[in-house]
């Protein structure tokens, strides 16, 4: 039976996955084990997305299925959380000040998370200082800044300038992304790289942090 949940999640079988977890819990299967399987399934979803087999709706749907599965597992997991999987490294993600778009940012957070990174999601319209403070607090080696509107060009630049002014620029790699972002915007803002899509954020983080 081992591996069944991995496949159900990877293949986006919502009702079957939920029914499977319910039955398995009734039979006394270890919740932590099921959670590991679910996570493995999510890893496969991420791979299929990066290979072009899956698209954004598949990712979002897999997230919804995982949420339902975790809800079932949670009561049985209490006190058993010790076996935390080792994280690859920390990444701070934020949509910059003035911009409230979250779809792209949420995808990046999701993919970094299923790929094993410890993600600090600061949300949308994040003030420059909040990002600098979080950087100081976590010593995160990577930051991703998101923005959909052209006003984000300046907000990204101001954020990166503030990180430099705080003396932290050489301690962190900065990636940017969003609808109108390209190489020219990367140069303007002083970021280290930009990503065309959410998977590139994972590639960049892996390249910078390793893993």
């Amino acid at each position: 039976m081992a591996g069944k949940l991995v496949k159900l999640l990877a293949d986006l079988k919502e009702s079957e996955a939920i029914a499977f977890v319910e039955t398995a819990l009734e039979k006394g299967t270890d919740a932590a084990e099921l959670l590991e399987e679910a996570k493995e399934g999510m890893g496969i979803v991420g791979q299929r997305f990066s290979s072009g087999e899956y698209f954004i709706p598949d990712l979002v749907y897999s997230g919804e299925i995982l949420k339902s599965v975790v809800q079932l597992l949670e009561p049985k997991l209490k006190g058993k959380q010790g076996a935390d999987t080792k994280k690859l490294g920390k990444v701070i993600i934020a949509t910059v000040a003035g911009d409230i778009h979250d779809i792209g940012k949420d995808l990046v957070v999701f993919l970094l998370d299923v790929n094993g990174f410890e993600v600090y999601d600061l949300g949308i319209d994040v003030p420059v200082q909040t990002i600098v403070d979080k950087l100081k607090e976590t010593n995160s080696p990577v930051i991703g800044l998101s923005g959909f509107l052209t006003l984000a060009f300046d907000a990204m630049k101001e954020t990166i300038d503030a990180i430099a002014a705080a003396g932290l620029r050489d301690k962190v790699k900065i990636m940017i992304g969003g609808g109108q972002i390209d190489d020219q915007v990367k140069n303007y803002t002083g970021a280290d790289a930009y990503g065309k899509d959410a998977m590139e954020a994972v590639k960049l983080a892996k390249q910078w942090i390793g893993g």
Binding site: T150, F153, Q180, I181, D182, Q184, V185, N187, Y188
Partner: peptide, 9 residues
């Protein structure tokens, strides 16, 4: 015509 070109080019 790209936003980056008219905004930054």
């Amino acid at each position: 015509m790209q936003s980056s070109t008219i905004g930054l080019g």
